[in-house]
Every structure is written in C-alpha cells, then in structure tokens.
Computed example of a mutant assay.
Amino acid sequence: MSDKSNYKRVSRNYNKNGYKMNTTEEFKRTRKILFDKEGIQPQSKIVTTNGPVKNVHYLEIGSGKPLILIHGGGSHSSEWFNIIKPLSTKYHLYVVDRPGCGLTDSFDYTGVDFRKSAVEFVDSFMNALGLDKALFTGHSMGGYFSICFAMQYPERVEKLLLIGAPAGVNLWIPLVLRLLGTKGLNRFLVKSVAKPSIKNVKNVHKQILVADVEKLSEDYLKHSYYGQLIPGNEKGFLTLLENVLTLAGWKKDLYIVDLQ
C-alpha cells in the first residue's frame, strides 16, 4: 500500500457514534491500541503546575519508588510504551509529556532561556505531584532536561539513567534537525518534503532514532504521526529546535559538557 493511500486510510477514522475524530482523539485511540497490545493500562492524567506551562500531561502506573521518565525531541510519553510494563513492577512511574509535546500544553520556545525553562518544568512538575525526590530516566532531549535539573537540585535526584546520548553532549547535529531548526526554512519544509506523514515518521526514526526501523510496528508509526498533528505540537518542536540549534549544530552556550 502506498504512503498516500495509507495516509487516507488512517486519517478517515470515525468514533462509534459516526463522528469524525480530531487528531487529539486519534492520538488517544492509537495510544490505547499500543497499550492494549503491551498489556498495560496506565492512568492518563493532567496536573496543574506553576511552571513554564500550566497543564502537564503524564501517565501514571506501578508502585514503589517514584521514577520520572522524560522523553526526547518532539516525541511524547507514549514512546516508552514497550518498557512501561517491566518498570512498573518495581517503580511508581510518572511518564511525562514535555512542554509542547503530547497532551501537555503547547509552548513557544522563542526567546526562552532554555536551560532555565527545562529546570523549572521538572521542578514545577515534581512540586505539583508532591514529590520531594525521584529517580530519573531521560532520552535525548529528556536527558538534557534531567541533567540540568540534577545539576541544580542534586538533592532531589536519587539516580539518573540516560538512554542514548542526551541532547547537548555533542555539538554535531544531524542535517535534518539543523534544517528544521532554521527559522523560515523549517516552516517551508514541514509544508512540503517534511510534511507529517507515516512515511516521514519512519524515515526520521531510520535516520536518527533506531537501529532497525523495520522493528517498529505500524501501530507505533500511526501513533507517532498523530502526535505530530496535535494542535500546537509542530510549533513547539520547531521553536525548540530554533532555540537550541544553528546551521552549524548545537549552540555552544547550551553545550552540556560546559554547564556549571
């Protein structure tokens, strides 16, 4: 089946009452499919914070010591779907959507002090949940958020596990991200060759995220596609990249090795 026909097929879904679902509803529907196949039923919750964004979405499941999982890039909390079940047998998981991602409030990173905002986000999220201390697992940009928070509030971080290289440890950045971080050009790209589609979701994962893209299920690719279509998420991702990148790569003043 071609990508064009596949796009038509996944975008024409209706709820049980015959009404066409919007992208947020489709995101939730495809998330449920992923979770059902993994045998997990995490609670989907919204907490009000006094941080960079007011309403923060997170998934909660399990019991034990609190473990906060922070996803990467323009992704969302569902990206952890295949390790939630084993982790939840030992830990109380709080799987959060970063600002402008998933079901958390949209966010414009233009002119924002990025490191400060990252720390304030984690701090306000923990405060809203009444968590004095937690373990952290971060992937890519989630690793950057976790490291910055741990450096400012080491007493609140019991342990920190980084999956893959955190953002900011290397000044070199893949070309596709540098182009998407170039203001003006990025808007053109997302309306043309980088327009959200299942094919492009698969290509990005193949280029920079996974070793074997063929192991990603169609259900996961559809879910990621709808995550890109949630209102405000595109702007959040592009302004984030504009904030932290130049055409040469990662901004030197945000280089994590030099943070003190």
Rank of each mutant, 00 (worst) to 15 (best):
L87F: 14
P66R: 07
P99V: 01
I256F: 01
N55S: 08
S63T: 12
F149P: 03
W250I: 02
P86M: 07
L189K: 08
K28I: 10
K199P: 04
L254G: 01
A165V: 05
N50E: 06
G249D: 11
P154M: 12
L221T: 05
K183A: 15
A194T: 09
E60I: 00
L240W: 09
M151W: 01
D108E: 07
L185A: 02
I70A: 04
K235R: 10
G227Q: 02
K90S: 15
L209D: 08
K222C: 09
G100F: 12
R115E: 09
G130D: 06
H92Q: 12
V119Y: 07
Y226K: 07
V190A: 13
G72F: 15
M141W: 08
G39F: 14
V213A: 07
S217Q: 11
N200S: 06
T239K: 00
M141L: 08
L171F: 07
S146K: 07
G227I: 01
V47W: 08
S11L: 00
H139K: 03
D36P: 03
V210A: 14
D97Y: 15
G39D: 14
L209T: 06
K54R: 11
P52H: 03
P166M: 15
A167G: 13
G62L: 11
E214V: 02
F149T: 10
G143N: 10
E26K: 13
N200E: 09
K183F: 07
D97W: 15
I230W: 07
L135S: 10
E60H: 15
